[in-house]
Design a protein around this nucleic acid. Structure first.
Lengths: 221, 221, 221, 221
DNA sequence: GATGAATGAGATTTCATTCAT
DNA sequence: GATGAATGAAATCTCATTCAT
């Protein structure tokens, strides 16, 4: 349980009660996250979480009604960080834009790690499944919307099935974080972006967008 | 499990002992699979599996050292069915080829269902993780090989990063089965195939392959 | 866990499964009863009951879903023994009849002991309260019925309120077992019976009944 | 417990400290009583009592060493109210005297309610049992004393066993409060009194006492 | 081999009591 | 004195695994 006040010599190690309680709650949340990620949800006990957070078993139940609720709190806290950002396809070079978005999203996911427990929970707890499904639908419709705007401007392949492409993008984005560990090679966001862009834009449009972007940059500097 | 054979004095039991034991083992495997899929691995007890298979709890432990080993046996038995087939890109219309392969693979996955428990186990049991990683690497290299052959024949985009594309295909294939439930629309294998082909082949090559295919079919008939 | 078979040398120490299980169930019931009576319901833990019955904690839960259910089983098993017998006022000397009934009932209660925990449970568990109330109503109406028959024969005090008297008798009978411990004197069933009879019969009727009884006895011998 | 006095600068707090402490103690006692009666002793937690009394959990332990001690204080405070009044059999109509005494006692018991938890505690805490036994003995000897005076004046049945009758009266009085709920009819104190009087006095004596009472009343008015 | 009752370690959860603030 | 968060012992209950029959 880190307590920064301890380091401030000359001050009373005083925190208003609410804040201290918040600290403890957070310590429990963090410990829960850490242990869930490293051992899985079922393999982690409430006692362990409490011990890891440096509090007694009973304290766990002051802040959370049970393990499940701690997890749900974690999910709610972190949901926005799990969602990939919404790309704006038009204004600049789509490949490098996507690449940096992917890299940032990937970094966030790896820092978070919580997504690794989710598949375990989908089977055991329908409400988690519901929760995740909702989130996925949200992301999917975001991606779909971006694609639609690009399509309206005549930038995409002519016979593009937006539903399917946006779903494919979703899947690629969601699984990007795992590329390295499972195929032995570090994720190459630049290449992934190229693949995605190729699904969306014909080569000439892509070239055009990239040229416009370069011009843009030259004018700006 | 009532066994009327015991009552037929003077007849040979219809199955030699070893085979009857095999039957029990298989019943347990099937029950394990069914229950793991519907309730998750941790939520399924050895007693339940035994009861579902129509044998006594203790019998479970005659055939499997524990729950984990039953699962590993399941995985080994079914692994080949989890692997998607290796596409041969050259000989026919890639889109319809892929489409039918995807559909067949998807059907197998849904019949199997076992893949749904795997994420739960990856964290709990490193050997499962190892096992799965191995399988994925195998599939990945199959896909990669197919792509390489296409590339050597000059069929693919010029600047194609084969590693990345094959990884993207892997991800799409692996997640294809879940498309429907999660985005509200039934999986459309035709469209998915088109997307994948667009990642791999330039439009003119694709057209050419499809024409060749049609010619082929006409000649054949 | 007493096992009488151990003492039968030369016999197989064999009991059919059901009987053995019954034995264990009974051992648990008895242990529950003993401990509930000596320590109270709340003060007795499932673990203790199991240990006292010579079985493991888990075995307790094989036979009873929880402590409460064991108690309810006890109550159902013993309810008929808790009910006082129905007196037949007419056929013989009411005082000695009542006296022997009271003594027998009292002996049964003391052997049983379970009634001592009931008050504790009435507050905690409304279903126990309901259960007991039902039993009391049954006894009460039995007593009332006996009184009515006596009244119809013109044997009782003229202005007798049957409801009230039967209630008073119920209360006296129910509390008879506790007389000794709480007032320092052994229960004197003969005297209690006299008191009850005085509530019901005028002295002359009582005398008459007793005389008739004596005549009866003389004729019988 | 909001306390506006703290805000009135320059005024003496309305209550000296000790008295305010007394108030808290009393609030705790009352809350304990209320909750014990409605939920039972074991089912009531110290935290609940404190919350109900409007003080912090810790404050509970400033005034009482533990839950048990709060209960004992309750008992000591209320014991005199639990004791039924001592009847004076001679000076007036015993039936109506008893009737009004019974009614008053019954009302007190119902207001108090604490007697309902006692059975739960007798088994758990021998000192409570001791305490209650002492109280019962006290009441019993009071009743016995009254009967003896009546006997000395030759008012009672000739062969009356005073011990037994006084015990029977005690039991009836103690259980009177529960008559209604358990037999479906409201307690009828007049009838109960008649029953008790019939146990004690022969009809002619009773008549005589009632006549004397009427004469008394006529003379007084 | 088969059975399923028995085991007991371990997870979840509660609550009387303490103690830093 | 008052507070209420924290404690941790203890109760309830589950289930993988064993073993007598």
């Amino acid at each position: 349980m880190p307590d920064h006040d301890d380091l401030m010599i000359g001050e009373f190690p005083f925190l208003p009660k609410q804040e201290r309680a918040q600290q403890k709650r957070n310590a429990l949340l963090e410990s829960g996250q850490t242990l869930f990620i490293s051992k899985g949800y079922e393999q982690t006990t409430a006692k362990e979480i409490a011990a890891h957070a440096g509090v007694a078993t009973g304290t766990f139940y002051r802040y959370f009604s049970d393990k499940r609720q701690l997890l749900m709190s974690l999910l709610e806290d972190k949901l926005d960080k799990l969602l990939p950002p919404e790309p704006n396809w038009v204004s600049c070079d789509p490949v490098s834009l996507l690449s940096s978005l992917l890299e940032a999203h990937n970094k966030r996911l790896n820092e978070l790690g919580i997504q690794r427990v989710l598949p375990e929970l989908v089977l055991k707890d329908p409400s988690v499944a519901e929760f995740l499904g909702e989130a996925r639908r949200k992301i999917h419709s975001r991606i779909l919307l971006g694609l639609k705007q690009a399509e309206e401007k005549g930038l995409t392949w002519e016979d593009l099935d937006l539903e399917t492409v946006s779903w494919a993008i979703l899947v690629i984005v969601e699984n990007g974080h795992g590329k390295e560990g499972q195929t032995g090679k570090r994720a190459d966001f630049q290449e992934i972006s190229k693949v995605i862009c190729r699904m969306v834009f014909p080569p000439d449009v892509l070239q055009q967008l990239q040229n416009a972007d370069e011009t843009n940059n030259r004018n700006n500097s």
